[in-house]
Design a protein around this nucleic acid. Structure first.
Lengths: 346, 346
DNA sequence: ACGTCAGTTTTACACGTGTAAAAGGGAGGA
DNA sequence: TCCTCCCTTTTACACGTGTAAAACTGACGT
């Protein structure tokens, strides 16, 4: 019933009467072997069970065919969607993806980087942890192998290839909309755990000033557990609403998860944000978190183009792997536009 | 500035004057080397940059120290939380986790399984895709290496070790509550993509009958894109609510993501589910999806014990890796109780 | 001075495959 | 029949480390 198990290519070669190097070539690319031989090998593989040893194949190749990916959190659909897209793009490009999660811990992030170096991955795609990331680790990664940063870029490493969203554009888009339809927005920030947080904040302030409005940022003071954005948004706004503050303002949230918390705070205080209510409370987010269409009211936001970012990151990395020259003093930066998603909350 | 890079243990051994086998032992466990020598090695490592080659170390070890984990979806916080817990537990136990996602595709799931076999992982933890999973692949995995199923267990493989939630208990818990406080619930199912879906449904029917009520299951008919549970829940209930049906009933959703869609459908029809409204609409879910506290109204649900499940799965797998005997005719099954989370929606 | 012993080095081989160069084999054309 | 050419096989070596057994080293106690 169960096929006989064969462990090495050598045994396999005697079992089906083809030389071992021919098998080696077959498993790397069947086109490098005569069609008739391919048939014979495939027929042989029907009769026995054999999988080439992953480590042995990688040990002595010039290219491992592996792309390493590091994401900061696993409990955030933003990053899992990004990872999903990256995995699909990499698979299409013929690469195997090994993904690691930093779990909010710089030590784990550093360990993952070391693992990638020790695996001689062909390249690495990293969504950094944020302020606490060990810059030295990233720097070592950059100098040793093809390396592209995704989603957020530390100011401390301006010499790295980068793919992400144009936050000036995307934040500007939603601010313009909010200002056009009603009062200029307050910015509900998130704890400054990563560079996007600061970048968002800065983009908001710049745009407000260029429009001639006074920027107003709230929510930076709260020291929250990492990653609990919803709780943060709710707690901050609950505080203001309790004092009757901002109950009739536009509130732009740093991201949708903060926005979901904001919606919750509004509901708790009997407030219903929405663009239909003139002069009333309006709440908007950023990212187009997958759950936005299902909140009550549905959250108006700016969509990041996960798909484009994932694809661009992979294809740029593959370019570099294939020998594209990168200039550390002038790295390629690809920024994608956000798209306004008008729903109910603003 | 940058330390000289050393690629092999051999070079390292001449660089710091310690024999290569001693270095080998050092990198596996410093305790196997004299303290004075450890100091000398560590001092040497300060001066040069060296990481042992991942593949070479794994190639010839009796144990690779790797646990392979397969989860079905990445865009579902349920599975990412589970994976997070598994990774932490495995790390504590001294194992490296390689995780792969099936992306709703049995072919990818099978490929991941093959990868694990070719990596000679010490053991595998699998949350199966569901009905479409290739049972043959799982069976081959089971016979070749320590193997524990998590979250959902195909009826077609009753001979596998399993860790999950006791759905009879958890579903019973919420049904009892709903019946105690109001009318017996209708069950809003999800498309039957995995075994838990069916299991939930069966648990619901059994409990209802034992309580003397007529079970009523809706939502199985809809053929939805996989993984879009919220949209499914919303679409199904929107259909009923449009016809004025079930607007005053208790609705038990197969999981919280379906429940979030259900809440959305209610809001769209101006309905506010909640336990405070006597005889009115009530909506409950299952799992304790992280966003439940932040929906409007907050979703009442039954919490699965992610942490316990993740820990138990890892520690059981490690037991088997360390030689615990498993009896295929009587595999160990660990079921954890759900905990009622009373919030606002029911 | 001798034996003992623990820690270390040496030696030798193994892991399973990649790869390059040389040698072999069969089909086709002259 | 012979030559040519394309595949394939053979041969030989390489990848970087694990591991077991034997030989070695130095400190210690008698």
């Amino acid at each position: 019933m169960t096929k006989p198990r064969i462990n090495t290519m050598g045994e396999l070669s005697v079992a089906i009467g083809v030389s071992r190097p021919t098998l080696s070539r077959f498993f790397q690319d069947p086109n490098r072997v005569k069609a008739a031989t391919v048939k014979r090998i495939e027929a042989g593989l029907e009769r026995v069970e054999y999988v080439p040893n992953f480590f042995a194949t990688r040990l002595n190749r010039k290219s491992t065919g592996i792309i390493g990916v590091i994401i900061p959190y696993l409990n955030d659909l933003f990053f899992t969607k990004l990872l999903e897209q990256i995995e699909k793009a990499a698979m299409t490009a013929g690469y195997t993806v090994i993904s690691q999660c930093s779990h909010s811990d710089p030590a784990i992030e550093a360990r993952a980087a070391r693992t990638f170096m020790s695996m001689s991955v062909d390249g690495a795609l990293v969504a950094p942890l944020g302020n606490q990331s060990d810059t030295v680790v990233h720097e070592r990664l950059r100098t040793r192998l093809p390396f592209v940063l995704v989603d957020s870029r530390p100011k401390t490493m301006p010499n790295v290839e980068y793919v992400g969203t144009d936050h000036d554009q995307s934040t500007g888009l939603i601010i313009d909309y909010l200002c056009r339809v009603g009062a200029p927005p307050v910015f509900l920030a998130m704890p400054r755990v990563n560079f996007n947080a600061v970048q968002h904040e800065n983009a908001y302030c710049a745009r407000m000033q260029s429009l001639g409005f006074e920027p107003k940022v709230i929510g930076t003071e709260s020291v929250n557990d990492q990653g609990h954005y919803e709780a943060h948004g709710e707690a901050v706004l609950d505080g203001y609403f309790s004092r009757g503050v901002f109950t009739d303002r536009s509130i732009l949230c740093a991201n949708d998860r903060v926005g979901i918390g904001a919606l919750r705070a509004a509901a708790r205080h009997g407030l219903v944000p929405g663009r239909s209510r003139r002069g009333g409370l309006r709440i908007a987010g950023h990212d187009d978190y997958p759950l936005c269409p299902f909140t009550t009211p549905a959250l108006t936001t700016v969509a990041q183009d996960f798909e484009a970012i994932g694809n661009a990151a992979v294809s740029r990395l593959v370019e570099i792997i294939n020998g594209a020259v990168t200039d550390p003093t002038n790295p390629q930066v690809q920024l994608f536009d956000g798209v306004l998603k008008l729903r109910e909350s603003a």
